[in-house]
Simulated assay, not measured.
Amino acid sequence: MARKSLVDVVADELLDRIVAGEFPPGSGVPGELELSARHEVSRMTVREAMKTLVARRILRVERGRGTFVNPLNQWSSLEAVLRFASEGQDDAAVAVQLIELRRMLETGAAEIAAGRITDGELAEMDEQLALMRAAHEANDVDRFVAADLAFHDLILHASGNVFVAVLFEPLTRILASRRAQTSKVVQIQINALAEHANIMDAMRSHDAERARLAMDRHMEQTLNDLKTHVLES
């Protein structure tokens, strides 16, 4: 692995501080002198680090006023947004937006996959659903989450669209940690099992519209469960 340059080190640490909530959206960040002293680097290095974050639209420069943090919805770096989603403080908003993104991607993937899925892939989905049921009975959240993710991953790959799987892959780590949180709630597991069974039946029928609607209902149920059992509590 290539060693990070000093510019990257300074930019990453400042991003870490932004993600941790030390500098929330709209707030100003330290100037060049303060950052150069903190990192024991030249002002030129700090200036280049700031330019990196400005280019990613994480920061903005206001002439005569200073450098400020942009709202998350203006950031253009997927890596930075994913870091915020996994480590940031605005948990509720990010959790809802992740489900909205999944709804956009996975309903379409299910619709396409229904017409292309093979008997072998259906058998693998059945196996993962069985593993989810067994994990639920054993109160094994980690195994439940692993089987849940594998079930959805099979549908993404069954769609045959390489872009869908590639776009979704960076979300896997975040989804795993968030599913571990929500799946601790027994009622959420029960609801998930019912929705996954409906999706399984729809995929087995090879009915594209039925598969799309089944996945959409699952995403709606997931959002409702998040709001009812996690965010409100």
Rank of each mutant, 00 (worst) to 15 (best):
H196T: 14
L226V: 09
V141I: 15
A20R: 06
A37N: 09
T67I: 13
V54A: 01
A135E: 07
R43E: 05
D140L: 10
Q221D: 14
L82K: 06
L167V: 08
A85Y: 10
E195V: 08
N70E: 12
A138S: 12
A202Q: 02
S76R: 05
A165F: 09
A135F: 12
E232D: 14
R178K: 15
E209I: 04
G66W: 05
L193S: 12
N198M: 13
A138D: 10
V69F: 01
A95N: 09
D90S: 07
Q189A: 11
V19M: 04
R3Q: 04
A194W: 08
I99A: 02
V141N: 07
R212D: 02
M104V: 07
R116K: 14
V166N: 09
S86M: 13
I174Y: 04
V94E: 00
E137G: 13
A194G: 06
R65K: 15
N73K: 03
R56T: 04
W75I: 04
A95C: 02
H218P: 02
V145I: 13
L6M: 08
F23Q: 05
D12T: 05
M125C: 14
R133C: 03
A49R: 02
H152A: 10
R60G: 00
E34N: 01
V7N: 01
F144D: 11
P71K: 01
M44F: 01
L53H: 00
T172D: 06
A2D: 03
V230M: 09
K227N: 11
Q187P: 03
E137Y: 08
S86G: 07
M44S: 01
R102L: 02
S177A: 13
S27T: 14
I117K: 02
A110Y: 13
V145T: 14
H196N: 14
A114W: 09
